[in-house]
Amino acid sequence: MKAKIKETEKNFNSEIKDISLPEHLEKIRVKYLGRKGIITSLLKQVSALPNDQKPVFGKLLNNLKTNISARISEKSASIKPSKRAEAKLDISLPGIKPVVGSKHPLALITQEIKEIFFGLGFETVTGPEIETEYYNFEALNTPADHPARDEHDSFYITSKDLLRTHTSPVQIRVMEKQKPPVRVIAPGRCFRRDAVDATHSPIFHQVEGLAVDTNITFGDLKGVLEVFAKQLFGRQTKIRFRPDFFPFTEPSAEYAFSCVNCKGKGCRICKNTGWLEIGGAGMVDPEVFKTVHYDAEKYSGFAFGMGIERIAMIKYHIPDIRMFLENDLRFLRQF
């Protein structure tokens, strides 16, 4: 046994002397110290020896192992400096990027919108996309022969069921279930039989807002939408209200933000008006309150709606609404 150990040591010493390449050194390491290496096999042999000899040879062998291991490290350090001149780190080489995903721009903007309204004490509610005429129109004070229905060219499932043309039916569903105070927003998908072009899509998304309490005023509606405008588009954003008509609000308004692009001076995006029309709003019509059994003498409320695509197009400078459903990864990965 002793001879074997001596022999091994000798062989190792002669082999390591002429090593000059790290890969050769590695071979030697494996040969002596590897799982199936010489030392391991010697250790196995030692364990087969009678018990009184084990410690002696065991110790010898362990010394040798430590030795070899130290010599290899030493050698390794001495041959490390490569033949090449030391290269300076080129920090302009490309970074190694982990793969990250993306959220759809409509999801991103919806989240941003929601978060602003959370801060104003609103909560999220949802409603079905297949609606009844009752919720989509009648309960919203828009009976069958009302000309306002002209703007809601609808997809019908049956004569009474249709794809909702706006998120406003969620107002009714919330008020049917809940007594004031109410402060909700309802984001969701809507459908209208509009011919497709750069700004129209039969499938689009809206966010509806509703606040009802004993002392809600038109001034509050203006305040809430003004805070919203400034948070979404920046402190300098101005908001403008002008009269409009919706059967389920009275007074009704259309609201616009000062053009984000030209700051109101007039440009292509705002068609030189300085204003970007955002959506419709108003005070909840007493007829609607009657439908959901709220006392219109006691409660008042405001409601507003906005098109999510429209806001995303303004915010991200997206020129064509069709891009949202096209899902080209070169588009999606920008968000």
């Binding site: 104003l120 002392n215 509050d220 809430v224 003004e226």
Partner: peptide
């Protein structure tokens, strides 16, 4: 005038 809603919220 622009104001903010007062009162409780259930949110």
């Amino acid at each position: 005038d622009t104001t903010m809603p007062r009162g409780q919220t259930s949110s």
